[in-house]
Design a protein around this nucleic acid. Structure first.
Lengths: 193, 193
DNA sequence: GCTGGAAGTTACAGACCGGTAACACCCTAG
DNA sequence: CTAGGGTGTTACCGGTCTGTAACTTCCAGC
């Protein structure tokens, strides 16, 4: 039973992809390595030949998520070359898509909640990605000609972060449903200053 | 070793209080019942005489958290009787205090992240509390004479929720540091309409 | 002082966890 | 054909998890 994600590709890739999916759906502590390897159509030994521990697998999953996120930013630039304001609106649009599905929120944020040990290796990756995202959004706001770029970027960040976690508590019909409206009106308001 | 929280009081209360504290610090799945009872200066049998399962203990902890939260709202009314706008500012102030400590965020939201089973008994409690909080904040905004009360309340909710989870990813010096500024300027902006 | 119930103690069941050892297998590169 | 690396299989280790059984101890109310 190769189960879903697991076509014929290299075991390492299958494990990584399956782990990302299962961590997202069931939480990191809610999934054992046995379950991952079984769903990936392989076995525990193979996992431990490619990853030296579950913690390292977690880190690698988060890195993969970070790489995916990075690609989205390239897409903004590719679709609206030079037009930073359009890219900012594209960011809002993309963010709202994350809220429409029944997604379980941001893998990074969720991992930060689950992995309470302050020295867990995953914490570095989480912090790095979140800071990179912040810098990108600040740059986008600044280059779009907005005065208080940092403040707008941080506000938008918190709104999205809040919307993604709120969905998990009260569902998509809660406060997160108003995200686009909030974000767009904020942008308009900052532009008017 | 009665350890911190556990003075001489009824075992049930000690267990409840200790569990709340440990769940908050180490996460729900990161703490076993043995560790809780030991820290509470009692033993596992006593725990299972008062709570029929760990899941029920979790639910009871969240209910206690909800009760605490409810008391805070009474405090707003007591300190600024009738003055809804002052109460709204008190809410912002209180919210910011939650961000200054090295707290691990909102127990409800964290539980929603950790307990991925959609039919987990705790989910009802989480949703109920979050919806109650939302209604209270909406009422506060409306009674403070703000036009788009729901939208302001939802925006403030998402900002706080986002700030509390952002702290866990990037620390208190990240975007969450600007929470008060964002909230106050939002309130001012909504009042001006 | 006696009694009854709450609390503590010890031991255990059964499952699952992360991680490893030893060995058989297959498939491809030379 | 052959050699060797990647993979699969089975069994296991030691630890931890929730939850229970059987028994003892303590203490307050009568």
């Amino acid at each position: 039973m190769t189960d879903g994600v697991a076509e014929r590709s290299r075991p390492r890739d299958r494990i990584l992809e399956t782990a990302q999916d299962m961590f997202h759906k069931h939480g990191i502590k809610g999934v054992g390595v046995d379950a991952i390897t079984e769903a990936a159509g392989t076995n525990k030994m193979t996992l431990y030949r490619h990853f030296e521990s579950k913690d390292e697998l977690i880190v690698e999953c988060l890195r993969a998520t970070a790489a995916k996120a990075s690609r989205i930013w390239d897409e903004f630039e590719a679709r609206h070359p030079g037009d930073k304001l359009a890219q900012l609106h594209a960011w809002v649009q993309k963010a709202s898509e994350l809220l429409s599905a029944d997604s379980r929120g941001c893998d990074m944020a969720n991992a930060a909640v689950e992995l309470t040990e302050t020295d867990h290796p995953a914490r570095r990756v989480i912090k790095e990605l979140k800071e990179a995202q912040r810098e990108k959004l600040v740059a986008l706001c600044r280059d779009a000609g907005i005065g208080q770029a940092e403040l707008l970027a941080d506000t938008l960040s918190l709104l999205l972060e809040g919307a993604r976690v709120s969905m998990q508590s009260v569902g998509a019909e809660g406060p997160s449903a108003q995200f686009v409206r909030m974000a767009e009106s904020l942008i308009a308001s900052f532009r008017a200053r």
